[in-house]
Amino acid sequence: MNTVVLVKQVPDSGAERSLRSDDNTVDRASANNVINEMDEYAIEEALRLQEAHGGEVTILTMGPEQAGESIRKALSMGPNGAVHIVDEALRGSCALGTSKVLATALGTLNADLILCGAESTDGRVQVMPHLIAERLGIAALTGARKLDVDGATLTIERQTDEGYEVVTATTPAVVSVWDTINEPRYPSFKGIMAAKKKPVRLMTLADLGLAADEVGAAGATSAVLEHSRRPERAAGVKVTDEGEGGVKLVEYLAAEKFV
């Protein structure tokens, strides 16, 4: 079974993040960029399936040149190789544009299984798996907390507000995973060394047969009109408990009409 894992590089969610003032895109230059955390769980799941069923694991990333660092990091966990789509014309792509590029690339990669994170920490859009599945005409099993593979049959368990549901499809399919599915491994020293020599194929829009105006800012289907920093929340009253803390808390809640 051949698996492609979609990996996105994002600004570290633990640090300050912002949009650029010139073109309203995510400021990646000033941010500390990392692998989207959920994608590490997708990589881990792919490696576990490879251990059980064989086949190749390939990383697929669309992103600027510096995303190459995240790709090496992903490869150090164990995948066989990567495809990195990088092209100046991709800057400013909307989710639809990104899905077009990723789906076109996937069309050339012959994957039985496409694994991705359930959402990215920068956009939080949660739409990529379905955008891609819709374009490829294949199933999307989203938000998996458990994935079983039996031949060509995929079965996932996903959390819902009411409880959970079990969903099944046959390959090829897209499966997105939550961080409840496994515990990603740390790259070993050997893995880090090996990653340096693993093949990373760079592809441009031309390689994919896509025109520059179909994607990027030129082909975007939505636009940011304005952005601003939200006013910081001001700290309010802080009291120290000297035996009456609980009562004071309730007095505040009562004054605000919550009690």
Binding site: G236, V237, K238, G246
Partner: peptide
Amino acid sequence: IFDLADFGVVGDLFKIVPQAAEEIRKR
């Protein structure tokens, strides 16, 4: 968390929360 709290109580939650619950019940 106190930087964004409108109201904060510094102290042990195991003392404060039961007391608050008791106070709400009283009211």
